[in-house]
């Protein structure tokens, strides 16, 4: 699962964990404790993330200060809204393990399961 393309995910993970404003250098040092990685790689990744809207930044002296544009929770909420509210984006193709159910349907499902379980016991 953790391929090269996942560097963006790793950097975002770090950014959310740190909280507040961060320089490329600080993220680099953070990552270097776990893997061999070059300054330019981290810099271009963070630049990409900025371009795609995940990170905001402002100039401070010669370097940039970066911070997450939205919290992880805000992104999660947005994704869940897309995933669960079918009307939001009809061109999104997902396969849910379970579609949303009404209370009645959930109750019927439970009854069906209990009946099956009871039948199994009497056998």
């Amino acid at each position: 699962m953790r391929g090269f393309g996942d560097l963006e995910a790793v950097v975002m993970d770090r950014m959310w964990r740190r909280g507040g404003e961060t320089t490329v250098r600080e993220v680099l040092e953070d990552l270097q404790s776990q893997r061999e990685i070059a300054y330019t790689t981290v810099m271009s990744t963070m630049d990409n993330l900025h371009r795609k809207g995940w990170l905001s930044r402002k100039r401070q002296g010669k370097a940039f200060l970066y911070w997450p544009s939205l919290t992880r929770e805000q992104y999660s909420a947005r994704l869940m809204r897309d995933a669960l509210d079918g009307g939001g984006n009809p061109s999104l193709v997902l396969s849910h393990f379970l579609d949303q159910m009404s209370d009645v349907e959930a109750a019927t499902l439970r009854t069906a399961f209990q009946r099956a379980a009871a039948e199994e016991e009497t056998r």
Binding site: L84, D85, G86, G87, L98, D99, Q100, M101, S102, E105, T108, L109, A112
Partner: peptide, 12 residues
Amino acid sequence: TGALGATGVGVL
């Protein structure tokens, strides 16, 4: 979400 019921039937 207001979109309930329409899709859940398949689950039963």
